[in-house]
Amino acid sequence: MTLAGELESLLPAGTSLVFGQLRLCRRDDGSFEACHLDDAEKRESLEPIPSAPALRELAKFDAAGEYRPLKTAPTLRGGWITRCDEAAEFLRRLDAIYPGVFATWIAYAAGRHHPTSLRRTLDRQTGMYRRAGTITDGMARRLIRELCHIGCLRTITWPIHDDDPVARATASPGTLPMICTEACTLAVNAARTLAKEARAAGD
C-alpha cells in the first residue's frame, strides 16, 4: 500500500488521532484536518494554513520566535489549522511539520526499517564528530535523559549497543507513534560535546 493509502486506512472518516502535538481528524466527508492539540476545541477560530511550504515555515520557529532545529521538540506553536481533501497532500503537510515521522513508523511497523544502535551511529562519524564514539555508556544514558527524554517527543527504539535488548514500539489506541530509529544530528553533536568535556576533564 502507498503511504497515503496507509494514512487513509489508519484515519477512517469520522475519526481522529493524536500525532505528537497534533490532532489529526478525518471529517465525515472524508476530508482531512490537522491542528495543535491545544487548539482542538476552537477549530473555527484558527488561522487556516493552506500548503506544505507554509506549514514548514510555521514549524521552523516556536511561539517565542526561536528556531526549532528538532522538529519533534515539544515546542510546536498553535493557532492554526490545515485542511485538505487528498491523503497524499495531507501527508505532505504532516511531513512539513514532522518530516518523515509517519513513513518511519509505517516502515518500522512493517519490519522494513530497523533501528541502528547508538554505538553504530557514533562509531561511523568522521571529521569534527570523529570522537563522538568515545563517550561512555553512562554519558550515553545522560544524553538520552537530558536531550531525548526532555527535548523530544519521539520514543527511542535504538539500543546503545547492537545486542542490548530493546522493547518494540507499539501504537496505543488513538495515537500515531513517533519513533526514533537512529540518533539524530543533535544527539551526535551532544555526544561530541560530552566526549570533549570528558577529555578536557582528563587533561
Binding site: L70, T72, T104
Partner: peptide, 16 residues
C-alpha cells in the same frame, strides 16, 4: 539534510 530533518538516515522510508 545532514543537520536538519528529514535527515539522510530518515529519507528512504519516505520515498515510494
Amino acid at each position: 539534510f545532514w543537520k536538519e530533518e528529514p535527515s539522510f538516515r530518515q529519507i528512504w522510508p519516505m520515498i515510494e
